[in-house]
């Protein structure tokens, strides 16, 4: 979305290999460690098992959505519809539950529904060749609208307490929520696929130059199509999680979450133009935003300041890597006469 796309000079910089953590990712990871240290020392109540639990459980939906979002942004596309898919799935989940179906049946159905919702984005983007920004703004409105069509003014809240409170369980005295474990496993799977398989590497190649990727034999359209399906399926998981965690299925569930997810992914060093970025950086971005929010809330920083800070960090996330790139280019130029 920029008139003049400034691409990094060397292609090898863009290959997403773990060994080549670029300086921005390192900076973010250091920022996470620093913020933990500073918050633990200065904010009362931050470093405690209970607060760890609060912090981590709020990260689950954003972390989940950030995984496929990273892959999609790496290919130079975007998916703004994820939170609406989650809301839509939440409502369908609620109405199926209200109709008396069992969870064993509802959960797979909902994941399929999410995948189909994602496939609609995928067809429009990869088959018809429409810009994903416009397509997913459209489906953002469409799926949120369908969520309200499904449940209307109703909220389904008749979920058994055993399940809703079971989701809050912690690992022993550590305060770490049990359900972060499957999320971490999923993150590892995404990380391995992205960084250690040909498929993963092809994503950055697509984002860097679609034409070159096509010449190299990568099936660009097919790849993007599958990414949108994965994104829809993961969004469905978030919809299910949201419904059960809050014990309430309603039309406005997860509204606006897409902005937090994209903010975290970009803060994690993924270029909005595609082609560069890696998963450890993104996870650090998600965690950093979560820690800052939690610690500043505990320190009684008002909501308006938090809002400004989120916006500021987002801008910093795109300005800073550019500044780093410039300084590198400058130093490279000066060293090679």
């Amino acid at each position: 979305m920029l008139a003049e796309t400034t691409r990094p000079a060397a292609v090898r910089d863009t290959a997403p290999r773990l060994g080549f953590l670029r300086s921005w990712d390192t900076a973010i990871i250091i920022a996470v460690l620093l913020s933990i240290a500073v918050a633990s020392a200065t904010v009362t109540g931050f470093a405690s098992p209970r607060n760890t639990g609060f912090l981590l459980i709020d990260l689950i939906p954003i972390l989940l959505l950030a995984l496929p979002m990273t892959l999609i942004i790496l290919t130079g596309e975007i998916d703004l519809s994820v939170a609406s898919v989650a809301g839509f799935v939440s409502c369908v989940f609620g109405s199926l539950w209200g109709a008396g179906l069992s969870l064993e049946l509802i959960i797979p159905l909902c994941i399929v529904l999410g995948a189909v919702s994602g496939a609609v984005n995928g067809v429009l983007v990869s088959v018809l060749g429409l810009p994903s920004l416009a397509v997913t703004i459209g489906t953002l409105a469409l799926y949120r609208g369908l969520a309200f069509v499904v449940l209307g003014d109703q909220a389904v809240t008749s979920f058994p307490r055993a399940i809703t409170s079971g989701l809050q369980a912690k690992i022993g005295a550590s305060g770490i929520p049990v359900w972060i474990i499957p999320v971490v496993i999923l993150a590892i799977i995404f990380g391995v696929v992205l960084h250690f398989t040909g498929f993963g590497r092809s994503l950055s190649a697509i984002g860097y130059s679609e034409e070159a990727a096509r010449f190299a034999g990568i099936r660009v359209a097919q790849t993007k199509f599958w990414l949108f399906i994965i994104s829809g399926a993961v969004a469905a998981l978030v919809g299910i999680w949201w419904t059960l965690r809050y014990g309430s299925a309603r039309g406005d569930n997860a509204t606006g979450l897409e902005l937090s997810v994209i903010a975290a992914v970009l803060l994690g060093g993924v270029s909005i133009f595609g082609g560069k970025g890696n998963l450890p950086g993104v996870i650090a971005g998600v965690v950093l935003l979560g820690i800052l929010r939690n610690a500043l809330q505990l320190a009684r920083v008002p909501e308006d300041t938090l809002s400004m800070l989120t916006g500021g960090l987002l801008i910093l996330a795109v300005v800073a890597p550019n500044a780093i790139a410039w300084s590198r280019t400058l130093s490279r130029r000066s060293s090679t006469p």
Partner: peptide, 13 residues
């Protein structure tokens, strides 16, 4: 820097 990101940031700010 990309306008999508900047104006998303200033939306918050």
């Amino acid at each position: 820097v990309p306008s999508l990101v900047v104006t998303l940031g200033t939306l918050y700010i």
